[in-house]
Amino acid sequence: MSDENLSLELEKLCIHYKRHDDLLSFIKKVHEKCGYLSPENIKNVASLWNVSVGEIYGLTTFYVFLSTKPLGQNVVRVCRSTPCYLENCDMVIETIEKKFNIRPGGVTEDGKFSLQLVSCIGACDQAPAMLINDELYGNLTPGKIETILKGL
């Protein structure tokens, strides 16, 4: 998307979310559109919403679903809270690390995948579990992970 188109679109989005007084959703929408919040994006959002740049940066760095660095097209979020820990979430992390040759927090070289470690995702009955983008995958085994990742 060209810069001009993007800023036009941001303006439209801003008007929509301002009506609902919903800054967080606005930021999330921008995040979704651009993949991450670049310094440029943060500046735009701040000036559109009429708050300081620091405020938006502070907001972005507070929430784990928002990133100030580029993410992969698919974000893999592996839960490692107690129930998943009991069901060997380390196996899940290791399998993905090996497959993509990345560390948690990293992005694959082709920019297709990011791996993040997160807190409880509320799928403890299906532990170990992970989210890929917004989709939930539970009862993971090395084989199952392989199939899921192939399907993406």
Binding site: L23, L24, K28, L59, Y63, S119
Partner: peptide, 27 residues
């Protein structure tokens, strides 16, 4: 009724942090 979504923060389940988050602030 309107649905508002968080952005990944456990502390936002705490009632006052949740309200801060809806208001578009750090939780």
């Amino acid at each position: 009724i309107e649905v508002r979504e968080g952005a990944g923060a456990y502390v936002c389940g705490e009632e006052t942090a949740l309200m801060e988050s809806i208001e578009g602030k750090r939780g």
